[in-house]
Design a protein around this nucleic acid. Structure first.
Lengths: 352, 352
DNA sequence: ATGAAAGCGCTAACAC
DNA sequence: GTGTTAGCGCTTTCAT
């Protein structure tokens, strides 16, 4: 690797026989440069391969064009999709992303992470850590707010923070209502860890659907899983032990649903003839499970896109109004959709 | 959101009745500060919540503590793991990551992306785009090198660039040798797109293993897939049509292997009794497929970690030697391992 | 032990 | 049209 000293605006200026100021003007397309001078400078810029130092420019312009993204480690399908959506829109709008993956999302490290990102002069922070236990408690103190806008992805609409999210509770409802509409009455639930808000909300949707159908659920219909497939496998065994009349299972993600499918197969129960199964997330593999898995699809790329969009607006607003009007925090909820496949069809036939 | 004006070193200085330099000294733990002054300054820092501007600091120190990461969109399991590994080690070493996801990895946008990252003063670039077609051709020109170190993840060891990778060809060999050792003789292959280097290398491993066993393969044993499960499903049908004596399939990723499993089931072929299957990547779901899938595991988190480690050393070396000694590019290859499950066991029983 | 001056690379504001 | 001066927030001389 060579190229020790990076080329600065001064080098270009000297080489072109002009002042740094003029080089700057050329680069920023300012009008007041003589045609001839401009061409000469551009030639030197091209020859030297000069690229202005974005950091220095940011320092004076008081803009970094950088967003901080705090997100849990990407082992969950949804989080990757989210990140993709965020990155795409960010790029389109000219922002770079400073990435922080959080290995232990249940810990309350917000304070620390935010300080860190702020020190690096991000113009906004996108917070995509799932709500677990009280890992958001650091927010409560910070009553007035931050030096930069912050937006949450996921969780429940809050009064004091802008947020975009999926109506995950409705997802739980959709899944359950679908099973009910197929004629199943004894519907078990395998949740994610109940410390996770998203787990509790999906459970709520399930509960609501059952209650509205006149079938208020009991505790022995519920098993708490922990997301990986193994807990779905265990979960089915537990459910059957506690609730033998079980006809159908709603698993709160597709991995656990996969575990259920496998356990069913080992128990000699055919899906869906002997047991119906619905998952959540609609991972690409779900269509190839045995049986093909009915699941709840969330448009997470769109959600990420939306988050950046909102963030951009907040930044722009702040830019215009130095007075910091602080628009009322918006919340946007996207609706999930059910994708019906064989695993939940009473007749056992593929839909359509 | 409030807090309009960020607090600078000057504010702290004024508040504490000292000069900015003294504040700087306190923050950087320089010795020559009177105990009393130091305490006073620290108190003000805490009160104001002062956090030095890392950008400004970087400007003068000529260090950004930032690495650029260029990586394909995260729909492939391997890439997420890689990114996790990269992020972890980077954080440990005090680097932030500037993330660029590439939506169309087959395009040759290297020049552009690198310029962009350099403008933002990254200290090194980690290049994790799979080698597809000639999407690396931009490198050939740049004979001398870059302003900053660059390391590749994946691909084949090259003479002119530092690189860390998995010995994926050997992975293909391991998978095939395993099938041979189980007594299968007619082993088909479903590759990824053959424009991808990694596909060709896995194919090579398969070929070698067969040739060494005295069973040099013919073209009708090969089908080109495109990674998603659908192409595995199609692939099995094609293979059976062209090569009816097929006993086993090596699919170059687990998604395609899943497609094979599904197609087999629909054709009434039991796995492994009637058809053995091996995949690649060892995604977490593989153990729950039907049958549980034998697969090749790659330690991708470790690979990412390693890449950052190497990068760090290059940066340090450059720091010390202003003369830019340019250590000879290292290449490191990690070995993959086979994870044996039921889908490839002749007897049809689980291993161990 | 502390402050004043200079400068990192760039641009805004004013000269001329 | 173009150059000069000043300064973004910080640290590194070098005085004192």
């Amino acid at each position: 690797m060579a190229a020790k000293k990076p080329i600065t605006i001064k080098h270009v200026a000297r080489e072109a026989g002009v002042s740094p100021q003029t080089v700057s003007r050329v680069f920023n397309d300012h009008p007041d440069v003589a045609r001839e001078t401009r061409q000469r400078v551009q030639k030197v810029i091209a020859e030297l391969g000069y690229q202005p130092n974005a950091i220095a420019r940011g320092l004076i312009k008081q803009r970094s064009h950088t967003l901080g993204v705090v997100i849990a480690e990407l082992d969950q399908y949804g989080l990757q999709r989210l990140l993709v959506g965020v990155e795409r829109r960010a790029n389109e709008l000219g922002y770079s992303l400073l990435l922080r993956l959080v290995h232990e999302p249940e810990l309350d490290r917000g304070e620390q992470l935010v300080r860190d990102l702020l020190a690096r002069q991000v113009e906004g922070i996108i917070w995509a850590i799932p709500e677990i236990g009280d890992n958001l408690s650091w927010l409560q103190d910070r009553t007035p707010g931050f030096a930069v806008p912050l937006i949450f992805i996921g969780g429940e609409p809050q009064s004091h923070f802008p947020l975009v999210s999926i109506d995950t509770r409705n997802g739980g409802r959709l899944a359950t209502e679908h099973l009910l509409s197929q004629g199943y009455r004894h519907i078990g639930l395998i949740t994610g860890p109940l410390t996770w808000g998203v787990s509790r909300r999906r459970q709520l949707g399930w509960q609501e659907a059952l209650s509205m159908a006149g079938l208020p659920p009991t505790d022995n219909q519920i098993v708490e899983g922990d997301w990986p497939a193994a807990s779905g496998e265990r979960g089915l065994h537990q459910l059957l032990a506690r609730y033998p009349q079980l006809e159908a299972v709603f698993a709160c993600n597709d991995q656990m649903a996969l575990g259920v499918l496998r356990a069913a197969q080992q128990l000699g129960r055919r899906v869906p003839e002997d047991l119906a199964v619905v998952g959540f997330d609609n991972i690409p593999e779900a269509a190839y499970f045995w049986s093909p898995l009915t699941s709840v699809r969330q448009r997470l790329i769109d959600l990420g896109t939306l988050a950046v969009q909102q963030m951009h607006q907040m930044i722009e607003a702040k830019q215009e109004d130095e007075e910091d009007v602080s628009l009322p925090p918006t919340a946007m909820l996207l609706q999930p959709e059910l994708v019906v496949r064989e695993s939940s069809i009473k007749g056992g036939e593929a839909p359509q």
